[in-house]
């Protein structure tokens, strides 16, 4: 066996770190980004400028797209649109929140020691995931009041009250139907989250004297949250769009109000596009918030902080796959290897 000489305390010549070489894509990226920004600025400008055509480019644009784009601005000033956006948003938030809790309870119910709870939860998920949400919505709004009324013989009981509420309020009917539907999907998401947590966590908690409920609340669910949150964000975005179905039962939300507006002014394309822009704006805000929360959750245990600006850039421009460069300076000097 040979004994290596101890490293001599001579200052090593500093080895240069890796450099970032700009390849051809750098130029392409810059060029395309600039072009994109110019086009986007031009489009936004043309939306809000209704004065007579000033340039050749604008003329070209208006002939190929003969619709009144400036209408978008007018559209938002309609009081019923403003109200409808509110209704859409509030309904989505309420139904999603209720759905999360329903999902949590039915996911736990499916693992319960009580057979009845297991069967009930299983049936609920089976039926609500297996039938169209539109059918559920219409059935809730028009069918359920009839069923409840016929069940309540006296005609003055709680069932009749519920029937009345659902029959008279399309918001209530939509809320009930969307919540129940969402709960069935959230149930699967919550279950996957709980199952992703190592069984040892529950065992360690129990060994410390925790009951199942306490262990779930303090140990398992907080960890499962990280798994549950991303798909829940997707569900929320999906929920926001699904609320448009409630237009069928007469709720004055964004889609129905749009239909009513173009029935009035015949601006069919413009109205629908404007509604689309509002939906897109709402879902975009949600996506950015979702991404921000995910990043925050991920970095809670590391020191890296990501700013909202970083996140926005990543959201709109994406992030390329990073090829890790070997850091030359990290290797020990040759003679000591």
């Amino acid at each position: 066996m040979t004994i290596r000489p101890a490293p001599v305390d001579v200052p090593e010549p500093e080895l240069p770190g890796p450099i970032v070489e700009r390849d051809a894509w750098f130029v392409v990226n810059i060029a395309l980004t600039l072009a994109g920004l110019i086009v986007a600025a031009f489009l936004v400008y043309s939306l809000f400028d209704q004065r007579p055509i000033k340039s050749f480019w604008l003329a070209t644009f208006h002939t190929t797209f003969p619709y009144d784009i400036g209408y978008l601005k007018t559209y938002f000033t309609f009081p019923q649109v403003y109200k409808a956006v509110q209704v859409t948003f509030v309904l989505a938030i309420l139904a999603q929140t209720t759905g999360v809790f329903l999902g949590l309870f039915s996911a736990l119910g499916r693992q319960s020691r009580i057979a009845l709870l297991r069967v009930f939860s299983g049936l609920y998920i089976w039926v609500w995931r297996g039938t169209p949400v539109f059918l559920q919505l219409v059935l809730t709004a028009y069918g359920v009041p009839l069923i409840l009324e016929s069940m309540d013989a006296g005609g003055k009981g709680a069932l009749t009250q519920i029937a009345l509420l659902i029959a008279t309020s399309s918001f209530a009917a939509g809320y009930v139907a969307l919540s129940l539907n969402e709960g069935a999907y959230m149930s699967e998401i919550v279950r996957a989250g709980i199952e992703a947590i190592d069984r040892g966590q529950m065992e360690a908690a129990k060994a410390l004297g925790m009951t199942y409920g306490l262990a779930m609340r303090r140990i398992v669910l907080p960890q499962a949250l990280k798994v549950i949150l991303p798909p829940t964000g997707n569900e929320f975005i999906s929920m926001l769009k699904t609320t448009s179905l409630v237009s069928y039962i007469g709720l004055q939300e964004l889609t129905l109000v749009t239909l009513q507006i173009y029935a009035h002014n015949f601006k069919v394309v413009e109205s629908l596009l404007a509604a689309g822009v509002f939906y897109l704006a709402m879902t975009t805000v949600l996506s950015v918030i979702q991404a921000q929360i995910e990043i925050r959750l991920g970095e809670r245990r590391s020191e890296v902080r990501t700013s909202l600006a970083d996140n926005l850039r990543r959201f709109f421009l994406g992030a390329p796959q990073i090829r890790r460069a070997v850091t030359v300076a990290a290797l020990p000097p040759k003679e000591h290897r």
Partner: peptide, 8 residues
């Protein structure tokens, strides 16, 4: 436990 099972 063998696998520690600390709460991460």
């Amino acid at each position: 436990f063998q696998r520690f099972n600390l709460f991460p």
